[in-house]
């Protein structure tokens, strides 16, 4: 069985190597950053040099609103700069760009999947008597995960007020998880590097920041602005300054952690795949053997990414829950 698997993998990697030999030199940097960066079109593949892409709508606020498809960009007086950002062709300035990019479309698709999954699960609970039936289908699949996050992470970390924050934290967890998982899928509805994009993680971290600081209790704010330290540390507000920086670094670390982990995972997989194409010029023996290694390594990295997808969603949720819980700590609890 194991031998069969190896043979299958080798056979699978040979046509890849053969395909790679047809093409020209591979610009590795462009190859990797083209895959992980956001773009105005959804590149699917290239067959014999012919690019197959899905054009995406562009919405630009410049001198008024311009809406056009990305393949009609030139006709509308816009072009891409060297970073793939859209600029006004005449002035060279960057307009306010509200385009539905690859990441935005990916976000929409993944959000739709997520909302459907959770609402279908909720519908099961509405339609069935929970006291007489055990969950089936989707509910049976999602309930253990939801309750694991709810009971083990949220309840323990947030404390007595967990019911108020549970919907937010569960939404964050499943939002990150589904986007991570869809990011691993290598073709169309997936493959967008969404959670490895700093704008996305920044918004998520910002929501957590708001959740922590908007609902913090009196004791939490006293600890920030007037902590229990000797007076000279408060008179020139050293401690308050540090505390305020602390409130910002917490969500900042969330942002960077998720972003960096997912980005690194994508880059690693792309590197492993890129080896096949890089070695295309080195002759069939090196290329073939390295292709086998690259495919095996790619399988390993994909499994690792599957694990990381879950772990990062879990960590983000757990830390958010902890920060929220810290903002609700009662002074008596600290003694």
């Amino acid at each position: 069985m194991k031998r069969l698997l190896y043979i299958f993998l080798i056979l699978l990697s040979l046509p890849l190597a053969a395909a790679a030999q047809e093409g020209e030199d591979l610009d590795m940097k462009q190859f990797i950053f083209g895959h992980i960066a956001d773009s105005h079109e959804w590149h699917i593949t290239a067959i014999h040099g012919k690019e197959i892409t899905i054009p995406l709508p562009c919405i630009v606020f410049d001198d008024g609103v311009h809406v056009f498809m990305s393949n009609k960009m030139e006709q509308n007086g816009y072009t891409l700069d060297e970073n793939g950002k859209m600029i006004n062709a005449a002035t060279g300035k960057r307009p306010f760009d509200m385009s539905i990019t690859k990441n935005v479309l990916g976000l929409m698709i993944d959000s739709l999947i997520l909302v459907l999954l959770i609402l279908l699960c909720a519908r099961w609970y509405k339609k069935h008597d929970v006291l007489k039936e055990t969950p089936t289908g989707l509910a049976a699949l999602l309930e253990p995960v939801i309750m694991m996050i709810n009971d083990d992470v949220i309840k323990d970390a947030v404390g007595p007020k967990h019911e108020k924050f549970a919907p937010y934290l569960l939404t964050v967890f499943f939002f990150i998880l589904i986007n991570n998982l869809m990011g691993i899928v290598p073709f169309f509805p997936g493959g967008a590097n969404i959670t490895g994009n700093i704008a996305v993680t920044m918004v998520l971290a910002l929501f957590t920041f708001l959740m922590v600081n908007l609902f913090g209790n009196k004791h939490y704010y006293k600890d920030i602005f007037w902590p229990d330290v000797p007076i000279f540390l408060k008179a020139i507000p050293i401690m308050p300054a540090i505390e305020i920086v602390g409130t910002i670094t917490k969500p900042f670390s969330l942002m960077v952690r998720l972003f960096a982990n997912m980005l690194a995972g994508h880059i690693m997989i792309l590197c492993a795949v890129g080896v096949i194409f890089l070695t295309a010029k080195m002759g069939p023996v090196i290329n073939g053997s390295l292709s086998i290694v690259a495919v095996l390594f790619g399988v390993f990295l994909n499994c690792l990414e599957l694990l990381v997808a879950f772990i990062q969603a879990y960590v983000f949720t757990m830390l958010s829950a902890l920060f929220i819980g810290m903002a609700h700590k009662e002074p008596a609890e600290e003694e």
Binding site: I36, L107, M108, M202
Partner: peptide, 21 residues
């Protein structure tokens, strides 16, 4: 390029996440 958040994506992400939430 990688570590500068794109303003358009930030706006879309905020809208989408708020709706999903």
């Amino acid at each position: 390029n990688l570590i500068t958040p794109d303003s358009g994506l930030v706006v879309w992400m905020t809208i989408i996440f708020a709706i999903v939430f």
